[in-house]
């Protein structure tokens, strides 16, 4: 039982970070319908910057977080204005934009490896390594940081989305981009905001997750796959779906590895994703947006 709880809590911490990544994918997707494959590299970069600012340079944690938020917002904005925006303006096909973001992913990954070293980096957890024992269950303090900060970010995102003018504009643009344009919403600016926001969310996810393992310039593709899997399972474009998808995949993977097979754990992720696409292609929470994404 103790080991079960322990496995579940660790899995939930990873799940929470992937929920953030899936959320960042959905934030960008819901206004622009762009599937941004550079998101995994954003998350990787967040982890590497976390190592650089906090572990290597020894800056205070809050400053490191602020710097990462700033850097990642900028990276997201750069990707949007240099790569995605020209294609959107030309009304290029979704797939063409996706391929261009693949190119952006290569550039980010290589630039990171060249600029910050191509080796794995240890990321120092802000609250130390010593596990806290709660009722015989040892829990890493970083698990609390991940789950706590994820909850805080989710509440903030929910507030932004439902209670602010920006949120209203985002929802309008997601519902009907052309209509939103007609009523005076600058969809181009909104897209820029979502890319910056997507960069920040993914970067924070990377910052949070890396002390549980380590930071590496080669993790981007793994992150991207897990994030897209979570987004698909939860429902592409759905914000609550992202959270559910992240947690479900985290748990499924861990329970598979712990109790079923020590070998086919990662396979479970892909199998689950394909299963969802078969049974419920719009994902668990995707129903409301089904019309928009147009099942044939």
């Amino acid at each position: 039982m103790v080991s079960f709880v322990e496995v579940v809590i660790t899995a939930a911490s990873f799940g929470a970070a992937f929920a953030l990544l899936a959320l960042s994918i959905n934030v960008i997707y819901s206004t622009s319908t762009v599937l941004n494959f550079a998101q995994g590299e954003f998350m990787m970069l967040g982890g590497m910057l976390g190592w650089a600012f906090y572990s290597a340079l020894g800056l205070p944690y809050w400053l490191a977080v602020l710097l990462i938020v700033g850097c990642m917002g900028l990276v997201g904005l750069l990707e949007y204005s240099l790569v995605v925006r020209p294609l959107l303006l030309r009304r290029a096909a979704d797939i063409a934009i996706m391929i261009a973001t693949f190119g952006a992913a290569y550039v980010i990954r290589t630039a990171t490896a060249l600029g910050m070293g191509r080796v794995e980096r240890p990321a120092k957890p802000p609250l130390g390594q010593t596990p806290v024992v709660i009722g015989h269950v040892p829990i890493l303090p970083q698990s609390f940081v991940v789950i706590g900060l994820t909850c805080a970010v989710l509440v903030l995102a929910w507030w932004l989305y439902t209670r602010t003018t920006l949120g209203l504009a985002l929802r309008a643009a997601a519902f009907d981009p052309d209509g939103a344009q007609l009523v005076g919403i600058n969809v181009d600016k909104l897209n820029a905001v979502t890319f910056a926001g997507g960069g920040v969310l993914a970067g924070v996810a990377g910052l949070l997750i890396s002390p549980l393992s380590y930071a590496s310039p080669w993790f981007g593709i793994t992150f991207a796959i897990s994030g897209f899997a979570a987004a698909i399972v939860g429902g592409l474009g759905s914000w609550p779906g992202a959270v559910a998808g992240g947690i479900i995949l985290g748990l499924a993977n861990a329970i598979m590895l712990r109790y079923v097979s020590g070998q086919w754990g990662t396979f479970a992720t892909f199998a689950l994703m394909l299963l969802v696409l078969y049974v419920r292609p719009t994902g668990i929470f995707g129903e409301r947006s089904a019309a928009r994404f147009g099942t044939v």
Binding site: T33, L35, D94, I95, M98, I225, F228, A229, I232, L236, T266, F267, T269, F270, A271, M273, L274, L277, P281, F293, G294, T295, V296
Partner: peptide
């Protein structure tokens, strides 16, 4: 499904 679902599903298939 319309759009990019095949791309993502095939990526899952590739890795699987």
């Amino acid at each position: 499904l319309r759009g990019n679902y095949l791309a993502i599903a095939t990526m899952a298939l590739q890795l699987g």
